[in-house]
Structures are given as C-alpha cells and as structure tokens.
Amino acid sequence: MRASPARSTGGSAILAAARRNAWTIGLLVFMALLLVFTKIIQPSYGAAGVQGLGSSVLPLALAAVGQAVVVISGGIDLSIGSMMALTSVVSATMMNERPEEFAIVVVISVLLLGLAIGAVNGTLAVVTRVPDIVVTLAMSFVWAGCALLVLKTPGGGSAKWLLSLVTGSVGIEWIPRAAVLLIVVVAIVWIPLRRSRLGLSIYAIGSNRLAAFRSGVPVGRTRVAAYMVTGMFAALGGLSLTASTGIGTPVPGPYTLMSVAAVVLGGVSLAGGRGGVFGAVAAVIILQLIRSDITFLNINPNLAVVVQGVILIGVVMIGSLVQIRRARA
C-alpha cells in the first residue's frame, strides 16, 4: 500500500493485482504446466481431450463456484450434492418427453428452485442460529429425500440442445463449449455480484461479522443471499448433470465434499472473507487433470484418489504454514 493511487503507474497496478491474486495465478501456472505435462506423456492428447476435460469438470466446477460464494460469506454448504441431485431429477422429470423448446421453461424454473432451496438453507441457518455446517448437513438429508420422492430410480429425459451446450467446441476445436458456458455463467453472475454492494457485504460478513454488523451491513439478509447464490449454482450443476447424461439421478454424487476441497485448494479461506471463485475453478481442473494423467501414465487409477488426497493435504499444510510464519513475523 505504499504507492498512492495518484502515483501508481500502470506497471505497479498490475503488480499489485498480481500480488493480491498470487494464489490464483500460481494455480493457473500449475494448471498450464500440467497441461504441457499431459501433452508430453500422451502426445495424442489434443482438442478432443480438452473438450472432454471441459465437459467432465463442468458439474464440479459449478458446485465449487457455489461453495466458494457461501464459504467467502463465512458459512459452508454441505447440501450442495443433494441440491444438485434434486435439481437434476426435477429438470429430467420436467423435460421428459416434452418438446425441445419447453426446456427453456425448465431451465428457468429449476434455477428459481435452486434460489428457493438456497433461501431455505440460509433462512434456517440465520433463524435457528445453529452452526451452518450442522444445518446444511441436516438439509442434505432433506434435499436427498426430496430427490428420491421425485424420482426413485435414475430416469427422465433431457433436451438435445442442452447436451450440445455442454459438449463439443466453439469456433476452433480447442475451446470446449463447456468452458465457454462456465465462463459466461460466472461472468454474468459473479463479476457483477462481486462489484455490487451485496458482493462487498458477502466479503464483509465473512471477514468479520461483528465489524460488518456495526458498519450497517444487514448480516442475516446477506447470509441468506449468499446461500441463494449457492443454491442457484447448485441448480446449474444439477442441470449440467442432466444435460450431459440425458437423465436425472436421485443419488447425490461426490460433489459436496469435493467442492469443499476445491474451494480450499482454490485459495478460499474456510474462515471466510478471503478468496474468489476463479481459484476454485482452477483447482477443479487441476484435480481432474491429475486424474487423467495418472490414467495416461498407466498407473493404478486408484492411486489418483491417493494423489488427490495428498495434494489436498499438502497444499493446505503449506498454505497454513505460510500463514503461521507470517503471523509470527
């Protein structure tokens, strides 16, 4: 903060921005290195591989963006996987044997459903004053039960244009459509949100709830809003599951805990108030790349899980060591 805004030149502004986002930039560099490494060990890895990567990371990436928002606000949402299952079966049931155009109505209503169930989570956490982790854990049972009420076994259907939205490429074949979709969604929702009063409030209540309250931030309402955004991203994740598989599955996938892992790897502090959604997305891609690299290397694929766990523990340990050092200095 030595350079005052008046004196700061373009170069130092970029430098300051780089310092602020050092973690995300580090992740992006690591991701690029992994891509190069993948290309070296598997020379045939090309446009098709990148397209597949885009499609396969989309549901978890959307879940991670949603988780990031609520974690930044100082909460945590352990019901993301169940919300995805619920929204996935609702969309699959609604689209089953319906005309293609009807899917637009489905998408909009499922997004509204996501906002609504997020609002229920948030309101319960605010009103009961039970720790977020307990409320959302309990609600994960409720939403999973609702998903089973809607659809007992995997089934339903999906519009073809939704499938084409999450697979294939845009323009040149190296740009997966799923990645473009992800960027567009995040750009439409997150970037305006972050610059808005609500976005600032979300960071404020995550960073210091009491200070935020005393500065006039409506803490309860902001928490509910953060949960609603999370619910909407969970609904997007559920829609992407239905779109890519063509059916809805009522059993929650591993998305809840993996989204927490991705968020933490992405540089969002579980204590709240710090980080952004892009790091979380980069972390999701890195986790998936490691998984495919291990397949390419002909190593026992089960070791991929071990490696993911070791990386999770290792990275977080290093991160917290750096913090402890900094606190002592």
Binding site: L124, M139, F141, V142, A144, G145, L148
Partner: peptide, 13 residues
C-alpha cells in the same frame, strides 16, 4: 427411504 431421509434431516435441525 425418501421420507425417512427428510424426517432425519428435519429432526436434526
């Protein structure tokens, strides 16, 4: 099973 899970969650909350 669905009802069981919903009641489960509600009781915890």
């Amino acid at each position: 099973e669905a009802v069981r899970q919903i009641l489960f969650g509600s009781i915890i909350v």
